[in-house]
Amino acid sequence: MEIRDATPEDWPRIYPFFAAIVDAGGTYAYPTDHTVESARPWWMSEPPGLTVVAESEGQLLGSAKMGPNRPGRGAHIATASFMVDPAHQGRGVGKALGSYAVEWARSAGYVGMQFNAVVETNVVAVRLWQQLGFTIMTTIPEAYDHRVNGLVGLHVMYQKF
């Protein structure tokens, strides 16, 4: 598996799994009335952010975006988001993307990384982020309207570098 910078030509290949994950309603609070055009700026980051793809034998397995958590006085803390194509889950793609994002942020001089909204019922992601050194700082109760489970909490997770 290779992780590389995403190009504009990758977006049409990312969008199908982006749409499937968003529409499933279990992990992301993006609007569900998205189109390939309207969703592009939500995922394809501009500098100082970065979007990457995980690819194997010409097939996209997943993608991540990363950059400053907030502008200005909050720009010393990084954030990131991750999506693994459901057809390729369970192959270590999320861990590889997560490790890549942490190392990218460290090497870019960020002092830590914060995830603002990890759905508490997404136990696979929560466990992975904890394995990569993140701590649940707090949980905002009923902050996410999960398609299956109704109102569930969102974890704020953090790792200091």
Rank of each mutant, 00 (worst) to 15 (best):
W42V: 03
M1K: 00
I14P: 04
G25V: 01
A80R: 01
T139K: 11
G74S: 12
P47K: 09
N122V: 01
V102R: 00
Q114Y: 00
E9K: 15
F82M: 05
G67N: 00
G72K: 11
R70Y: 12
P71G: 11
G67F: 02
R91W: 02
T121A: 12
E57T: 02
W129G: 02
G150S: 07
Y144K: 07
V124R: 14
W42T: 03
Y110A: 06
P12E: 07
A19V: 09
P16T: 08
G150I: 07
A19H: 15
I3G: 05
V93E: 03
V22E: 08
A117C: 02
P86L: 10
E142P: 00
V111K: 13
H34E: 13
T139Q: 15
K65S: 15
H34S: 09
G112A: 14
F134R: 07
A54K: 06
A20M: 13
R91P: 03
E120T: 11
W43V: 10
H88G: 02
G26I: 06
V52K: 04
V118S: 02
Y110W: 06
L151P: 12
R147Y: 08
T138R: 13
S81G: 15
K95S: 11
V84D: 00
Y15S: 05
T7G: 05
S63C: 14
T138D: 07
G58E: 11
W104T: 01
T79G: 09
P86V: 07
E57L: 09
N149T: 03
F161H: 10
T79N: 10
H34N: 12
G72M: 13
N149P: 01
R13Y: 10
P71Y: 07
G26H: 15
D145I: 03
R106H: 05
P16L: 07
E142R: 14
I14M: 15
M66V: 09
A78M: 08
